[in-house]
Computed example of a mutant assay.
Amino acid sequence: MYKHLFFDLDHTLWDFDRNSAESIAEIYDTHRLADRGVPSAEAFSEAFIRINRKLWADYDRNLVAHEYIREHRFPLVLGALGINDTAGCAELNTDYLRLLPRKAHLTNSAREILEHLHGRYRMHIITNGFAEIQAVKMASADIAHYFELVVTTQSADAKKPDPRIFEYALQASGATVPESLMLGDNYEADIQGAKAVGLDTVFYNPNNEQVAEPATYTIQHWQELKAIL
């Protein structure tokens, strides 16, 4: 039934939270944040992941610009931990962007399912991340060879859930709607966005998030995809 599979990258295949936590722990030590009153690397990581996820959700909804995220996330994290001195936050962000994309952890069984699907389907990425960062992530995790096309916000001049990014991906890959399937973890950006152009969808939902309208398929673990594809 399907010939083309379109995957989201962050949180779907590439384990953003684990990779981010490792990067944040290194920054915590390198920048001696304990001396500035940050109680632990774990507390720093938890606050960062929570705030960064909220900022990216706002970005998806066109509430903030990408530059706003880079400028404000570390001051917001320190503020959430009761630290008002935000000196050096630009250096924290620079180090984070250097460390993060070089991490290689994938979500549970993601590599196994990609290997299972490779050669059976034409596979592509649709991501709201930026091309240079996403390319390093995919190379670090050794998954770039699975995918024919990587569609980014820059290449499509649109970001999920805007239908234009999905339309661009279909056109650039030579795929049609009936033969294509979108797979992602973000219900609003990946699932609702893809449904708006008529695509069937797989909601990768390891945390059993409750949603109003179900995707075509919902899975909590990648091994469940074998019953669909």
Results as ranks from 00 to 15, higher is better:
Y217H: 15
Y168T: 04
A189L: 10
H116W: 15
R98F: 09
Q223Y: 08
I69T: 09
D85E: 08
E91Q: 14
Y96I: 02
Y28D: 02
T216Q: 08
S23D: 05
N84L: 10
S155Q: 10
G198Q: 14
P163W: 05
S40D: 03
T216S: 15
F130Y: 07
C89T: 15
G184Y: 14
K226M: 07
A104Y: 07
R53N: 10
D185Q: 12
K160T: 03
T201M: 08
L99N: 04
V177R: 11
A87P: 01
A65S: 12
Y59V: 00
S109F: 13
A131Q: 08
D15A: 09
A65Y: 00
Y68A: 10
D157Q: 15
R70G: 08
F130Q: 08
R36V: 01
D10C: 01
D162I: 00
L99S: 04
V136N: 00
L229G: 03
G82S: 04
S40H: 05
A47W: 05
V150Q: 06
L106C: 01
L81F: 03
M138C: 10
W14R: 06
I83D: 09
Q134G: 00
L33D: 12
F203E: 02
I143M: 04
H66K: 15
S173K: 13
M138Q: 07
G193I: 04
L106P: 04
I191V: 14
I51Y: 11
V136P: 00
D35E: 15
T107P: 07
A156S: 12
V136I: 12
G79F: 02
R98I: 02
F7W: 15
I125A: 01
V211Q: 10
H221P: 02
I219Y: 14
A43M: 13
G129S: 08
A104F: 07
H116R: 06
I113N: 01
H72W: 13
A169M: 13
P178M: 07
E91G: 02
W222L: 07
S180K: 11
L55N: 13
V202K: 10
G174M: 04
G129P: 02
L117A: 13
L99M: 11
D58R: 13
E91F: 00
Y28I: 01
R120C: 00
V64I: 14
A131H: 07
T86Y: 06
G129I: 00
A104C: 06
D8K: 12
H72E: 15
